[in-house]
């Protein structure tokens, strides 16, 4: 169970980082963000931005809301983010900046929707992916 403001804060930092990646086209920064996503997918405890939130931000915001958020959807979303940014880093570093641009744009869409609206795009896609997968496995 998580303080729901933590993932929102993390998504805000992520959005800023991804905008910088898009503007600079830096493959190394894309790779760094991929590592951050991987850590969050492994465990929210290890997610760097969430650590910053717990350490420095939460205390200034007053008591956490009673409403807690399950951590599974958040970890799943971090995994989806990792997939996108791994492709982006590979694209930028291997000299295919268009690949990097498209993958980073996808990740920014999800991160910004989470930061601004609390919407988990990865979670929304999950059921659709399952539906598609079931269709392919039955045919």
């Amino acid at each position: 169970m998580l303080d729901p403001r933590g993932p929102r804060f993390a998504a805000m930092i992520t959005s800023v980082v991804l905008v910088v990646v898009l503007i600079t086209g830096s493959g190394w920064l894309a790779l760094a963000q991929a590592v951050v996503f991987a850590a969050g997918a492994a465990s929210i405890r290890y997610a760097p931005y969430s650590w910053i939130y717990r350490k420095f931000v939460a205390r200034h915001l007053g008591p956490p809301p009673a409403e807690r958020e399950p951590s599974e959807p958040v970890r799943f979303a971090q995994g989806v983010g990792f997939a996108f940014m791994a492709v982006a880093a590979a694209g930028y570093l291997a000299g295919a900046p268009l690949v990097g641009l498209i993958a980073t744009a996808g990740a920014l869409t999800a991160a910004f929707l989470n930061a601004a609206f609390g919407l988990c795009l990865g979670c929304e896609m999950y059921l659709l992916l399952q539906r598609v997968r079931a269709r392919f496995s039955t045919n």
């Binding site: 905008v19 990646v21 086209g25 744009a105 920014l108 910004f112 601004a116 609206f117 919407l119």
Partner: peptide, 23 residues
């Protein structure tokens, strides 16, 4: 420059999508 344009476009499109969803 392309990256900046893409970033602005993504943010605008996402904001529009998010507002429709919220409604």
């Amino acid at each position: 420059m392309t990256g900046l344009v893409v970033a602005v476009a993504v943010l605008l499109a996402s904001a529009a999508f998010g507002l429709v969803r919220r409604a």
